[in-house]
Amino acid sequence: MKDKAALTHFLLERIKAIAPDSDTDDLDPDEDMRDELDLDSMDFLRLLESIAKQLNINIPEMDYNKITTLNTMVSYLSERQSSL
């Protein structure tokens, strides 16, 4: 899944699975999704673990806070997949 649109769709689905109450339609892709969608640190941890598992990649914990917006997450995952 290297196409950014497909990645975005995939990420929004993952977010919905963790936090089905979240209104992802109005999510500003450049804002911190934890604030925008009321995700606490446990939600965010579970989100990244689920993404890593589904994409079969490793996301080091050190990188978690570099990918808190939808856009940075998409770019990051796109790069990680390219480098596989």
């Binding site: 699975a17 109450d21 606490d40």
Partner: peptide, 19 residues
């Protein structure tokens, strides 16, 4: 199940709702 999760999170917030 998804609807129940959404309901619980919306009312209780992420800190209290079931995982």
């Amino acid at each position: 199940t998804t609807a129940l999760m959404a309901h619980a999170r919306k009312k209780l917030g992420s800190a209290v709702a079931p995982r």
